[in-house]
Write a protein that binds this DNA or RNA. Structure first.
Lengths: 336, 336
DNA sequence: TTGTATGCGTTATCAT
DNA sequence: ATGATAACGCATACAA
């Protein structure tokens, strides 16, 4: 490993001078700087991030937390898209990405301790159980954090606009002539609450019926549970003309159940998903869904976090609402 | 931040004693050790990975490289599964995971330099263009590496058994009565070459026709290109009874094209995918495919890499072949 | 059994 | 404009 000491020797100057020259300090003669830089390149010098972090108290490393409570973590396209874009933006701004978890090897620690242990300058928290005390501790501790799809007090967060998304879907379906809508939702997270509230509110505004029978619980990314909820809905005395699913993947579970009953979408019944992952547009018929701005969420998360890290004095917590986009698809039929 | 110095002061001992006690050295009085550990816990002491890395020349951090040449990287379920399992096994063994890429912020560096810069103890290379000189440099440099689905000389690698996988699929389809098979393959990587060779060899062994018309190029994870290849096949004077796709996602593109021609699988034509990602078994009909042992590949990659890191003296390069499993699904029909 | 001294590679302060 | 020195937090060889 070639260090600044090697360069110093080769150039016949002190290590301090080399360090300054490499970092572009203004108090080094331009000629000296040039000579040092040339030698550094020649020797194949690379700064040592570890030593630098120890000395400066800044690691240029940010942690990401993708502990999917429902199991799966980054395997879901929505989250992997977020991870990709967090990574891309962080790298663009000079930061590396390290996964945060609990219990590394023999050491048992919680998320907060892990982030401290690795000297993370900040942490992006996505896909976590925000009720978990360990998550709360991390999110409210002394490390800068940005959460996705959940807000902690006095902390920055990136929120997908679930209220508007749900409303857009309901209104779209309404315009297609549907008057009886069913909604299968995921676990009771704050995201789910917003979607349910928005569903109810929009239905109320449009004068649509809101029987509790039409709002059914299932689990995110779990086609089986959505299939069961679908079955329950199909047993109702009066069927809805359109069913909303918790997400695009869950829709597939509903689809299977519909087929089992001899129903085809959108011929016999209309359906809509949520997320708008690429898969939804590969399927035939193309799924009617609401595309969440996952890439933008990741980019904004990294940007906001790094802004907070680099300008803690002028920083103010911020909630960024990221809009999505209705993907019309072909699974909602015009009726009536 | 509480350091060993704080503990030393609180306990009235030297920093060396604290360090030893915390690391379970045998030459410290049990009573002292207990007292120091208690105080450490009381003060909320956490070791500083950065300082430790600098001192020991070991970071307990391994890099992962997921630079998908075909764009997308970890967005593909196969790779995200690998990433998950690499992460899980690495953490179990006491290592953290950092993404390796090129060009962090203003610094332009290649993969190898990045890994050095972050003092990675080793790197897992998955999903990369193994022809890229930058990848070659990383894989053959002085950092321990393990590659997935590609072998470098004198390096460890984890290989999915594509030969056996392809053979299993062909033989299964043969037993179902199919005698005319088409194979749409992905870009010409070493994986693809193995699959093509295995396809041809098995067909030859079974006495099946091997017209060049029946082997068509497309791109991995690109339903559109597979759709085009499917169209070309459907224009042949004599149709195959079964089409193999490069992967499960590509199959969806073929499916759409088949439907456009009024064909349904498996009623009119049989199809098979590759990968066996969870999605393939959610779809209806369930896809006939070959499930690659992605979790095991990730686990083995981490295990092998860390073994090499921790026992460099007794280490020998190793190729681990990970078998998969045929998923029968419902897209291959029994025919006369 | 405990303590002293040193150094990992870097940056920063303060002389010169 | 450059250099000597210290310090970041930790682990270890060696001395006591």
């Amino acid at each position: 490993m070639v260090t600044i000491t090697d360069i110093a020797k080769a150039c016949g100057v002190s290590r301090a001078t080399v360090s300054k020259a490499l970092n572009g300090a203004s108090d080094i003669a331009p000629a000296t700087t040039a000579r040092i830089r040339e030698e550094a390149k020649k020797l194949g010098y690379l700064p040592n991030a570890t030593a630098r972090a120890l000395k400066m108290g800044r690691s240029y490393n940010i942690g990401v937390l993708f502990s999917d409570p429902t199991g799966g973590g980054i395997s879901h396209e929505y989250f992997s898209q977020i991870l990709e874009s967090v990574k891309a933006e962080a790298e663009r701004l000079g930061y590396d990405i390290t996964f945060i978890s609990r219990d590394i090897g023999a050491m048992s620690m919680d998320y907060y301790e892990h982030a401290k242990y690795r000297s993370c300058d900040g942490v992006v928290i996505a896909s976590a159980d925000f009720q978990d005390p360990a998550i709360v501790r991390l999110a409210t501790g002394s490390i800068p954090t940005v959460t996705l799809d959940y807000s902690f007090d006095s902390r920055s967060s990136i929120l997908s606009d679930n209220v508007r998304g749900m409303e857009a879907l309901v209104r779209y379906v309404y315009e297609k002539g549907h008057r009886r809508l069913a909604f299968i939702h995921g676990e009771m997270t704050s995201v789910t609450q917003k979607r349910i509230a928005s569903f109810k509110k929009t239905c109320a505004e449009l004068g649509l019926p809101l029987s509790p029978d039409l709002i059914r619980p299932a689990r995110y990314h779990d086609p089986r549970s959505s299939g069961l909820a679908t079955r329950a809905i199909l047993e109702l005395p009066e069927l809805p003309t359109c069913i909303f699913y918790p997400d695009d993947l869950s829709f597939l579970g509903g689809m299977s159940e519909l087929e089992r009953h001899g129903l085809a979408a959108p011929r016999d019944i209309s359906v809509a998903g949520y997320d708008g992952i690429p898969l939804s547009q590969i399927l035939r018929p193309r799924l009617t869904t609401y595309r969440q701005g996952a890439e933008r969420m990741g980019t904004e998360a990294a940007r906001l976090l790094i802004e907070q890290i680099e300008h803690p004095d002028t920083w103010l917590p911020q909630q960024v609402l990221v809009e999505g986009e209705l993907l019309e698809g072909d699974t909602v039929r015009s009726i009536g």
